Lab assay of single mutants.
Amino acid sequence: LELTLRVGDKTWHFKDVDEEFVRHLEELLKRGAHEREIEEIIREWLR
């Protein structure tokens, strides 16, 4: 999967994204996660 995600003024483009990561992001967005929380999840995933 490829994913382009825009949060606030930042845009990330990922290739070979894990479906579990996408589901986790979807859940965060559904519950109205704040920009900082989403950025933290992305940084963790990139490690």
Rank of each mutant, 00 (worst) to 15 (best):
L25N: 00
K30Q: 11
R43M: 14
I42K: 00
K15M: 07
W12Q: 00
H13N: 05
F14I: 06
E40A: 12
W12I: 02
G8V: 01
V7R: 01
L5P: 00
K30C: 05
L46A: 07
E40N: 11
L28M: 12
E27C: 07
I42N: 01
H24Y: 13
W45V: 03
D9L: 04
V17E: 14
L46N: 05
F21Y: 02
E39G: 05
L28K: 09
A33Y: 12
L28V: 08
R43P: 01
L29T: 06
A33N: 06
L46D: 05
R6A: 09
E44Y: 08
L25Y: 02
W12T: 00
D16I: 14
L1I: 10
H34W: 07
L5D: 00
K15H: 12
W45Q: 03
W12M: 02
H34C: 05
E27A: 14
V7G: 01
E20G: 15
K30T: 11
I38Y: 04
E40W: 10
I42F: 07
D16C: 09
E2L: 06
E39H: 06
I41H: 10
E19K: 15
G8S: 02
T4A: 07
W45K: 04
R47K: 10
R23E: 05
G32I: 04
K30V: 10
R6H: 13
T4E: 11
T11F: 07
I38D: 00
F21L: 04
T4H: 13
R36Q: 14
L1A: 09
E35H: 12
G32R: 03
E27W: 13
A33M: 11
H13C: 04
R6M: 13
L3N: 02
R36E: 14
G32A: 05
R36I: 11
R6C: 06
F14W: 01
R31L: 12
K30N: 10
G8Y: 02
R23G: 06
L25R: 00
R23H: 10
E40V: 09
R43T: 11
E40G: 09
H24D: 07
K30F: 13
G32E: 05
I38T: 02
T11A: 04
R6E: 09
E26P: 01
H34Y: 07
R43Q: 13
E35P: 13
V22P: 01
E27N: 14
E44P: 00
I42G: 00
R43I: 11
V7L: 11
L25C: 08
K30E: 08
E26A: 13
V22H: 03
L25M: 09
E44C: 09
T4P: 02
E27V: 11
L1W: 15
E27G: 11
H24P: 01
V7I: 13
R6G: 04
E44S: 09
L28Y: 05
R6F: 03
D16R: 14
L5T: 01
L3P: 02
K30D: 07
L3K: 04
G8C: 03
T11L: 12
K30H: 11
H34L: 10
D9P: 03
D18G: 05
L29F: 08
E40K: 12
R47T: 08
E19V: 15
A33D: 05
E20K: 15
I38M: 05
R36A: 14
R23F: 09
L25D: 00
E35V: 14
E37W: 06
L46Y: 11
E44G: 07
F14A: 00
F21A: 04
E20N: 14
E2I: 10
E27R: 12
E40Y: 10
R47E: 06
V7H: 02
H24M: 12
W45A: 03
H34V: 08
L46T: 05
E40R: 13
D16N: 15
I41T: 11
E37R: 06
L29C: 05
E27K: 12
H24V: 11
E20T: 13
R23Q: 07
V22G: 02
H13L: 06
W45L: 04
G32M: 04
L28S: 06
L25A: 03
V17N: 08
E37L: 07
K10M: 09
E39C: 06
G32H: 06
R47N: 08
H24R: 11
D18P: 13
G8W: 01
E35C: 06
E27P: 01
H13W: 06
R47G: 08
R47P: 04
L3Q: 02
L28H: 07
H24C: 04
F14M: 04
L29G: 04
E26W: 13
R31H: 10
L5W: 02
E2R: 09
F14L: 15
E44V: 07
W45N: 02
K30W: 11
T4L: 11
W45C: 03
V22D: 01
R47D: 05
E37I: 09
R31I: 08
E37C: 09
L1M: 12
G8E: 01
F21E: 02
R6P: 03
F21K: 04
E26C: 11
E19F: 15
E26Y: 15
K10H: 12
L29A: 08
K10Y: 09
